[in-house]
Design a binder for these strands. Sequence first.
DNA 1: CAGGATTATTTGTCCGGACATATTCTACGG
DNA 2: CCGTAGAATATGTCCGGACAAATAATCCTG
Lengths: 248, 248
Amino acid sequence: MAKGKAQKQVPRYLQVCNELVEMIRTGEVAVGDMLPTELELCDRFEISRHTAREALRRVEDMGLVERKRGSGTRVTAREAPVVYNQYVANIDELMQYGQATRLAICSAANDPVPARLASALGCKPGERMPHLLGLRSYRDQNSAPPICLTEIWIPHASANQAKLLLDLEKSERMLYKILDFSRLSRVRQTLSADSLATDAAELLEADPDSAALVINRRYHDLGDRLILMAISTHPKERFRYSTELRSQ
Amino acid sequence: MAKGKAQKQVPRYLQVCNELVEMIRTGEVAVGDMLPTELELCDRFEISRHTAREALRRVEDMGLVERKRGSGTRVTAREAPVVYNQYVANIDELMQYGQATRLAICSAANDPVPARLASALGCKPGERMPHLLGLRSYRDQNSAPPICLTEIWIPHASANQAKLLLDLEKSERMLYKILDFSRLSRVRQTLSADSLATDAAELLEADPDSAALVINRRYHDLGDRLILMAISTHPKERFRYSTELRSQ
DNA sequence: CAGGATTATTTGTCCGGACATATTCTACGG
DNA sequence: CCGTAGAATATGTCCGGACAAATAATCCTG
């Protein structure tokens, strides 16, 4: 190889990491197969176990392999998925609203689930669960029309939680206290457009049949159980949903 | 507690990591300040440098500190931002469409930028740049109405690129070849609802004034320069935008 | 005092070794 | 044949040491 000295630009562990990534990319080691063990890498590349581990750690960080003590290193993907990070500071921002808005609860009842929502809620049509309806507006602008109409369904609520929820006259912040959002692991959001139904239009002080942005959010806990589903209907021009995806 | 040996559940480096996180959270070490050096941690916690580094690595992975060789470890955030990862396999998926659809280009010209888009495109109203218009539909269903109308603006195109773009009769895949999407670093998406203008409605085979989901996507390169802006208008019920946010 | 050269500090890379703990394999016994 | 106990295997944790490289601080010189 004839390395005088300055060849050292790329650290050894990165070289090994790259070779491993390449082995996976070309399919020399297929998805599902085991990568060489740390000690085998030590032999093959003439490196210490520390260096082998550093290389494997990088490959793991790329999301290409899964390591398990006692078992080994298994390939889980052929190419690194492009990961975009979306940073969200707190639960409010996750709900896409800051401190500036509040949700005024219009009604709260133990309602039967309509057929169109049954599958999304993972229950049978007609089953009853806590169901809230509220209007979100800017905290300081009482005269302005609301930003959106929000419908909330809460499956798997305990009897005690249900009681608290139905008494709910306060802001939505109480929701976070009653439900355990600290166990949040996954949120699925679906955005679509629809025209406003007449009753919704009235509440929202908007024209019937005008366009609206509908956001359906489902919050799952660590056990992947649906904690809450919220459907927000925003008349056009009152709301925009923005996300920024950053690579790596 | 009182367990003779099984106390070892939590590894030492994690204990140290937790103490450091706590120091940051309580403000004992403020944002902008330096964390103790590796050697200081070795002394203070009576651990090896390897263990200190492992602890610091974890804190770094949480996004709380920034490490720099020769300088030290600086606190960059008081609390770990909730990071949601969104995995996107390739540029197609980033555009939110798989292989199943294709964009048929209707028109391509060097058009003046309308006033309402000037600020988003970072240019003066009336400035000219390559501008494409196309209809996206399912690849195999030619009879079905299109999914959306897509308007594409390309600022900073070189003369050569502009020439290629205006000749564009092919699928949008050519766009990826003409423009350098490998340098993609940031995508900002904004979703809103609007009613369909009559001309758009005609192209889309939809009712005028009916609701539509409008997605504005801006693609920035590593130098944070706007590569491309695309505005897609989806008549209601033809498209839903879904994302799944996973914590850590 | 300004600016460059030198030195000290701090993290990065890499080696060696040892034991712990989780998993898998194997051999044994019922 | 099955299940279990033990052995073998593989990664996790933790220690020690050494030198490299980048940065920051200091000193020196014009």
